[in-house]
């Protein structure tokens, strides 16, 4: 398993860098060329959402992105430090530890004032074939993955 980690200040200009790095690692990991646009867009959406949330709640805190190739999957996790109470409350059932939330279900439950944030998550849910969102008071973690060649070469 190889992991690349990237942390960046919550500035919109850095989102493009994160997209480029994610796309380059996805290509190297063996994600099919036809899926690279989806990786680029989904990672961009997750990072844009995180940047907007940090600018409101904690502009000095960095955003973290992990890119991991594991057993034939290319996995991306974007973690922010902004409280995602609105997202958490939109889905929360009980006072339990943060649980993984299906991206599509979460987007459909978002209140109207988080429309654009929900829009981004809905786009991610449509693009990645496996998405989990972990909302909590300490931040939001979005994990998404795509199939990749186990050899690191793009499948035919």
């Amino acid at each position: 398993m190889a992991t690349v980690e990237l942390t960046f200040t919550a500035l919109p200009a850095h989102v493009r860098t994160a997209r480029l790095v994610a796309t380059a690692i996805a290509r190297r990991t063996g994600v099919a060329e036809a899926l690279l646009d989806e990786v680029r867009l989904a990672v961009g959406e997750a990072c844009s959402r995180a940047v907007e949330a940090h600018r409101v709640h904690c502009p000095g805190e960095p955003i973290r992105i992990e890119l991991c190739d594991d057993s034939g999957r290319f996995e991306v996790t974007v973690t922010d430090s902004a409280p995602s109470d609105d997202l958490e409350q939109a889905y929360k059932d009980e006072d339990e530890l943060p649980a993984a939330v299906n991206g599509t279900a979460l987007a459909s439950l978002l209140p109207a004032d988080t429309l654009m944030s929900g829009f981004g998550i809905a786009v991610i849910a449509a693009l990645a074939d496996d998405v989990e969102v972990y909302p909590s008071a300490k931040g939001l973690r979005i994990r998404m993955s795509w199939p990749a060649a186990t050899t690191g070469l793009a499948p035919a």
Binding site: G44, S48, M116, F119, G120
Partner: peptide, 9 residues
Amino acid sequence: DFLDSTGLG
């Protein structure tokens, strides 16, 4: 070359 949900907004 690229459009995301911010652009859609």
